[in-house]
Design a protein around this nucleic acid. Structure first.
Lengths: 218, 218
DNA sequence: GCCAACCTACCGGGCGGTCGGTAGACTGGC
DNA sequence: GCCAGTCTACCGACCGCCCGGTAGGTTGGC
């Protein structure tokens, strides 16, 4: 999105004696975009190499392998989630404000660039077992963080009879799904989507009055 | 799940002179299970053949190709959605009852067997363009059906200022995500999950009182 | 002359898919 | 009651292709 998206041969130099970190970042960014569009398994190393203006062998100067590349992207996405969503939310004392922070910030992140964050949830089976355990652990922590927030709301009496686990998963599903339908060039703009989803999420778990319909259909 | 899951050589006879439909159904069911677990691209024709007790060549007696197999599974899932969710919901006159029917029936279907329904949303890029257009069209119809239901609720005054499109997508995301976290042998049972998700979905879009907080009150 | 940053050429292997064949149950003619 | 022919339901061997990955250069700026 920002730069060097498919620049053929920038030949950017570094005086540090180390591998150019910008070049590497560009490779990760492109790889994330292509993995996102075609899926990890359907993407070949050649696809990525071509997208960054390298041959396959040239690409291997920067990466250790396809699975390492995937893990790097997913770790980056998880870092993003930590820094942009979890940390800011952790600083919120009020549970409802914290919930709103989580939803709106996570939704915002997805409307900005969904590639890495979507790969994070869709390509887990492409990872090596150890890497997968690492990512799954961090994801579980995130869901538990949301569930704890819902439990805190329940303790305040703002939520009645909602299982925090089901609630947390449901909200996460709602948020993650945004990447499937939201298009930056579409009818809806990001601010509207973020606000609407946040409002729905809060409404889904909060009960303003005690009415809790207990007869589902059939 | 039901029968002939990996029966080696049932040698079931048919007097019709046509290919045994049970055998074929078993192949589709197994293929759906494996596609669901490993992903379409990560699954080889050999994997499926082995799971049904055939060699690859033997399997090709029943299927035309990998992509046709995928399309058959997704069409079946879409048929299921039509028959078990959309049709029953269409018979509901009251928009709120209709919404509850959609969510609870769709959620129920996923808790029962998520394979085909999950493939339906995750493996679209594996299809041939014409097949993909077919499936995407049917999926779009479904989302529009939900959006129309939300619009009807809005016309009744039961929903204030919610974009029906965003609402429909968000509910769909919540429902589909169930297949990622619900396990039949887990702590939560299906009835509970279905009821809870349905309640959240309704709460997410309905406003019981006129309060639509722009300011987080109290 | 050194080293970062690439390249060409290649490898083993697995993939989707096909081919020719065949065991064995059934069918009709006599 | 037999047997030639036909059909379904498979299998072993194979094909061409492309995959992830590597060995061993070459080039150009410092």
């Amino acid at each position: 999105m920002t730069a060097l998206d498919s620049a053929p041969h920038p030949t950017g130099r570094t005086a540090t004696g180390e591998t150019d970190p910008d070049r590497r970042a560009g490779i990760y960014r492109n790889a994330a975009r292509i993995f996102h569009r075609k899926g990890y398994h359907a993407t070949s190393i050649n696809d990525i190499a071509a997208a960054v203006g390298l041959t396959k062998a040239g690409l291997y100067y920067y990466i250790k392998g396809k699975q390492d590349l995937l893990f790097a992207i997913m770790s980056f996405a998880m870092d993003q989630l930590d820094a942009q969503v979890i940390e800011p939310a952790r600083r919120e004392q009020d549970p409802q404000a914290r919930l709103e922070t989580i939803v709106s910030r996570h939704a915002r992140l997805i409307t900005q660039d969904s590639s890495a964050l979507t790969i994070l949830v869709n390509e887990l089976e492409g990872l090596l077992p150890d890497d997968r355990a690492d990512i799954i652990g961090r994801q579980r922590d995130y869901v538990e963080f949301i569930a704890d927030t819902l439990a805190a709301l329940r303790d305040e009496g703002k939520v009645l009879g909602l299982d925090p686990t089901i609630g947390a998963f449901s909200l996460v599903g709602m948020i993650l799904w945004i990447s499937r339908w939201y298009r930056a060039d579409g009818r809806l703009d990001a601010d509207e989507v973020v606000a609407e989803v946040t409002r729905m999420a809060v409404a889904a778990v909060l009960n303003r009055n005690a009415e809790q319909a207990e007869d589902p259909d059939e």
